[in-house]
Amino acid sequence: MPIVVRLDVMLARRKMRSKELAEHIGITEANVSLLKSGRVKGVRFETLAQICAALDCQPGELLEYRPDGGASEG
């Protein structure tokens, strides 16, 4: 998958734990973990907006396009 999720980088920058983010945006910690590892097929705009609001960032800072792949990074 050429889309790399950089959620862990942003969580580290904001010094926030996955559990806190999950509670903040109302999804399970397991789903946050799946999102962090890039093992999901998609992200709802609603979830993305909540993550951006919680981490005070833009969608472009969370997602990166790499034509050569790199599934599990981020």
């Binding site: 789903n31 999901v40 097929k41 998609g42 709802r44 979830t47």
Partner: peptide
């Protein structure tokens, strides 16, 4: 069921 499984992979 396939669609539901697909849907479960969208967070």
């Amino acid at each position: 069921a396939r669609m539901a499984a697909d849907h479960r992979q969208i967070v």
